[in-house]
Simulated scan of single mutants.
Amino acid sequence: MTTSHLYTRAYGAAPAGLWSAPGRVNLIGEHTDYNNGLVMPFAIDARAHMAVGRAAGQEVKVVSAQQDFTVHSFRLDEIQQGSPSARGWPGYVYGAIWALREAGYPLAGGLNIAIDSSVPVGAGLSSSAALECVTTLAVSQLMGIDLTQRDVALLSQKAENDFVGMPCGLMDQMASSACTAGNVLFFDVQAQTTEQVPFDTAAAGLSLLVIDTHVHHQLADGEYAKRRQSCEQAAAELGVPFLRAVDLAGLDAALAQLSDDVLRRRTRHIVTENARVAQTVELLRARRFDGVGQLMVDSHASMRDDFEISDPALDLAVEVSLDAGAAGARMTGGGFGGSAIALVETDRAESLSAAVRAAFAAQGRTAPTIRSVAPSEGARRDG
């Protein structure tokens, strides 16, 4: 069933328009965004599709093909922080509408919304950002509000931070909004600059595989927030606004000033991860993939040991991928479950996938879903 057909089934009319926004894979640069650092995500072809139309009255209705076609409904004035509209998956949609209204954009009248998303939930591929960005773009365009890609990303982040209650950085929403096909997005959060960096794995005879472990993470459960709080505490002890202010040359001196080992390890991850992103950018600008794999491996070790956001399934996926010939592998996303990625020669991708599945089976784990991905287009109007 297409999103348009779902809309017609739910509301008895055709939608005014169709929009979509993608999930994302983060090539490298994890938990650096809320430290004003460097990230390198790209959009994937899994997308949240949305059909939207105006409706009489003030009711905003939402239905999803992934949620038993149940229609959720709240009046515009009922969409408030802490209200029932913020609960569950509809909160990402209602949160984007709330963020538009809070920013002073004129929203009036009811809305009918239908959603069909192929972005896996809990896989570390930003299913929430896809929902937020497609809602922000669709509702703004339907109501004649002109937003830039950065506007869409910032409003969508506000929805997740302040309405849903998840203190994420801006990477996921910027990726879903601003990525382009064939490129990774080099996003310097401090400078608020973006650069589209070519990422043509096929020309290099390589594939990037996403290994969804089906260990579903729940980032709003507190662990993500604890990591952010640790980074903020470390920055405060160092007398800097964000850990981005610490560079690799000054790392040892900074670590010596911190009050405990946890803060030292969290800081070391952020500083070294920013350096790894910078090195990856230089390699890809030169159309080189040699060295990228080792940076991915080093990134995973840092997330596992210093930031402590990996888990046994992610570690297994990475270790088996490397043993099966991957040039590099690492977990991707916020951690505590989700997905790993592996950079591998295309003619070895099938045998690597088989090795990972066999290793998961040997441990009695749920079979992972493994897919090859390439950079795709960000949020857009489809019809």
Rank of each mutant, 00 (worst) to 15 (best):
D68L: 12
D68I: 03
D68M: 02
D68Y: 05
D68R: 13
F69C: 11
F69Q: 15
T70W: 02
T70K: 13
T70N: 10
T70C: 09
T70P: 02
V71G: 05
V71D: 05
V71C: 12
H72T: 15
H72Q: 13
H72N: 04
H72V: 08
H72I: 10
S73M: 07
S73I: 01
F74Y: 15
F74W: 01
F74A: 01
R75L: 07
R75C: 01
R75T: 04
L76T: 03
L76D: 04
L76Y: 09
L76F: 03
D77M: 04
D77F: 00
D77P: 00
D77C: 05
D77T: 14
D77N: 06
E78L: 01
E78T: 00
E78W: 06
E78Y: 02
I79F: 01
I79G: 01
I79L: 02
I79P: 01
I79N: 04
I79S: 04
I79H: 00
Q80A: 11
Q80D: 01
Q80Y: 00
Q80E: 11
Q80I: 08
Q81W: 07
Q81E: 15
G82I: 14
G82C: 06
G82S: 11
G82Q: 07
S83H: 11
S83I: 07
S83P: 01
S83C: 05
P84A: 04
P84Y: 06
P84C: 08
S85Y: 13
S85V: 10
S85E: 03
S85Q: 02
S85A: 15
S85W: 14
A86N: 13
R87Y: 00
R87S: 10
R87E: 15
R87A: 15
R87N: 15
R87P: 03
G88T: 09
G88N: 08
G88E: 11
G88K: 12
G88C: 02
W89F: 14
W89M: 11
W89K: 14
W89A: 13
P90C: 07
P90D: 13
P90G: 07
P90M: 10
G91K: 10
G91A: 11
G91L: 11
Y92D: 11
Y92A: 13
Y92N: 06
Y92R: 13
Y92T: 08
Y92C: 12
V93A: 04
V93W: 01
V93Y: 04
V93R: 03
Y94K: 03
G95N: 11
G95W: 11
G95Q: 02
A96T: 12
A96P: 09
A96H: 02
A96S: 15
A96D: 06
A96R: 07
I97Y: 08
I97E: 06
I97D: 04
I97C: 13
I97W: 09
I97T: 04
I97H: 09
W98E: 07
W98G: 07
W98P: 02
W98Y: 02
W98F: 00
A99K: 02
A99T: 06
A99N: 05
L100Q: 07
L100N: 02
R101D: 00
R101K: 07
R101F: 08
E102F: 07
E102S: 10
E102C: 08
E102Q: 15
E102T: 09
A103S: 01
A103K: 14
A103M: 03
G104V: 10
G104E: 11
Y105R: 05
Y105S: 03
Y105C: 03
P106Q: 06
P106V: 02
